[in-house]
Write a protein that binds this DNA or RNA. Structure first.
Lengths: 223, 223
DNA sequence: GATTGCAAGAATGTCAGACAATCCTGTTGA
DNA sequence: TCAACAGGATTGTCTGACATTCTTGCAATC
């Protein structure tokens, strides 16, 4: 029996469920940025006790998905454009690196998976379902990050992307953004498929810069 | 009155104090890797209640400084060399970028601060106090990261460095490591002082590669 | 009318105690 | 020797409580 086969069934605790539910709610924009989360209300809605909720909130605070100010409680942080820019810059650093590494080491099976996710995004881009666009695009990146050979890169990237999900939904719904995004992602895919590390980095960098620019436009339009 | 002047005095809560105390304890190696942290014991030692402790533990879990397995409780993760390598690689990515940016934008006052920290490390290197060496070296990086113009870069870097503190103490006590580390750091400082971005990146990269190699040796020696 | 001061209500920070579910360990029995 | 089991230890979760702090509306003052 392989040693790394983890047979432990990890029971899902109330706190884990709560973190997942709240994270999903935040990422899908259920709460307005700046709005406060009242513990007693959340307890009632989630059907859990206050200690369990507070543990979950501490986890989300450490992920920077919420802020907790002493004696004021938790709230959804309003991301400034400066912060978003900083995140995009670091994300670029990580994603470019991941794409480059991925080009030289992705297994054939995973490459097919990447192609599938590209096709899924193509379909979403053709429709006008911006939620599907964001989801399928996220899948595409996830596969790249998961195959770059560095789990930390993946972990950090996931954390950062979560924090700018607010902008990604809005920029994707800009006129023509989905289509040009598709073209850029196809470039990335083809560079990786060709095993061309340098091209993959270049394509990835270009994509990120355009995504950042689109996010800026979306923000300034105040969509 | 400037809008960004934060006059709010933020009261320190029990949970914050606890997170800080435990983090410090973990980083200074008070707990053996793999050892379990028993809630009731920690409560007694810290003089706090279990709910407060559990909140603090969730924060530390999200920072990846401890692991919490359902029904087994918190423990200090034993970092494998593969994980440490992955962290060193991402750290390299971030630190090289930060050094490069820093070279072209650090204010004169902060540059002097950087020089002071270099001198402090020099002093520590001359002594055989490896704790002082790690501390002063950390100060040196902190100043670079704080002046790279990207707070996210700094934040992510801090999180990663914390996780490999275990190795840094050990590698610094290798024969001659402190001295060669000093030479590398002086290179970085001088490149930054000269405003030479390219040289700063190069020097930073070289330093990181050597640090990683030293950490590997330290680990294999099983110090 | 605008501002200050105050008081009631709401929300948070923290604790104590409880109990079921799970894990760990040593003993017993085959 | 190995498997089953019993007991204690530990965690997951809840309820309830209370002091402290924040918020808000109203009254009083300039």
């Amino acid at each position: 029996m392989p040693a790394d086969l983890n047979l432990r069934i990890s029971p899902r605790t109330v706190q884990q469920e709560t973190v997942d539910k709240l994270r999903l709610a935040i990422l899908s924009g259920l709460f307005q940025p700046g709005s406060r989360l009242v513990e007693s209300q959340l307890c009632a809605q989630l059907g859990i006790s206050r200690p369990s909720l507070r543990e979950a909130l501490r986890s989300l605070e450490a992920e920077r998905l919420i802020e907790i100010v002493p004696n004021r409680g938790p709230s959804i942080p309003a991301l400034s454009w400066e912060e978003a820019t900083a995140i995009y810059e670091v994300r670029e650093l990580l994603e470019v690196e991941a794409a480059g590494r991925c080009a030289s080491r992705i297994p054939a099976e995973q490459l097919r998976e990447l192609e599938r996710s590209l096709l899924a995004f193509e379909e979403a881009a053709a429709s006008h379902d911006s939620l599907a666009q964001v989801t399928t695009a996220a899948d595409f990146y996830s596969i790249i990050l998961a195959n770059c050979g560095n789990p930390i890169l993946e972990e950090v990237h996931r954390g950062l992307v979560a924090r700018i999900s607010f902008f990604r939904g809005r920029s994707m719904s800009l006129e023509g953004r989905a289509q040009s995004s598709l073209a850029e992602m196809r470039d990335i895919y083809e560079s990786i498929a060709a095993g061309d590390e340098k091209a993959a980095r270049k394509a990835s960098k270009k994509h990120l810069l355009k995504a950042k620019a689109a996010a800026k436009v979306a923000m300034e339009n105040g969509v």
